[in-house]
Design a protein around this nucleic acid. Structure first.
Length: 220
DNA sequence: AAAACGGGGGC
DNA sequence: GCCCCAGTTTT
């Protein structure tokens, strides 16, 4: 990032840039199921290596049948498979939803835990899912590093990292804590629209004055 | 460190 | 039709 710009100004520009973008899936889910962390966790698992536009309608369809671990276990794995078929790895994910729901009942009284260690201890729940659940389901400041956050944080030049773990650590130092949750939302929205992995639409991006990679990268 | 785990969407 | 997308576990 060019030195004359602050993080606060960067956030303002990002808010403008993503004002009319489709919000991340977890926001839609939390509106449909207020203060219920379970649908957030399940939709995060469904969205692994998939895109929100595919996963969101499938998630809503699934939650109309089951939005608690108890209800999920009443469905057979075959039932879940048929509901979530449009998403990738649907057979693996149907089994995963079953095992995660059973684990929640066995170890956590059917409640989604709200600590990083407990979430990470659930098989199938990794670092990205853990941080997204902490932030979006519990409002706990967490930096959720998916490929968008990793790519764009580096592209902007505010950090220089190789792995998502390094990115999480670096952003904790660079970003004021009040922005930790919003950073993920903003960068996901920007990444899904203009700041794409290949040939990003830099000519339409309101961040050209800030971005270290403008002119370096092949863009449209 | 590298592989395996498959579906939809854009053009 | 072809190329793009995108975490976690396992080997």
């Amino acid at each position: 990032m060019k030195s004359s710009f602050s993080i606060d100004l960067l956030i303002q520009l990002l808010q403008k840039a993503t004002l009319h973008a489709v919000p991340p899936m977890t926001l839609s889910i939390s509106q449909a199921y207020p203060s219920n962390p379970y649908p957030i966790l399940i939709s995060c698992l469904l969205s692994l290596r998939a895109q929100d536009k595919v996963t969101l309608p499938v998630s809503l369809k699934l939650f109309s049948r089951a939005h608690t671990p108890e209800q999920m276990l009443l469905l057979s794995i075959e039932d879940i498979e048929s509901i979530i078929r449009p998403v990738n790895y649907y057979k693996t994910k149907a089994a995963l939803l079953h095992s995660v729901s059973a684990d929640l009942l066995n170890r956590f009284a059917g409640k989604v835990p709200s600590s990083k260690d407990e979430l990470m201890s659930i098989k199938g729940v990794g670092l990205k899912t853990t941080n997204l659940v902490l932030a979006e389901a519990f409002g706990i400041p967490a930096i959720c590093v998916d490929v968008h956050v990793h790519r764009i944080s580096n592209r902007l030049g505010i950090i220089a990292t190789d792995t998502v773990e390094q990115t999480e650590q670096a952003l904790q130092i660079v970003l004021p804590k009040k922005y930790w949750i919003e950073w993920n939302r903003l960068l996901v929205m920007l990444g899904q629209t203009m700041c794409t992995a290949q040939s990003p639409f830099c000519s339409k991006c309101p961040l050209v004055d800030v971005c270290d990679r403008f002119g370096v990268f092949k863009h449209r």
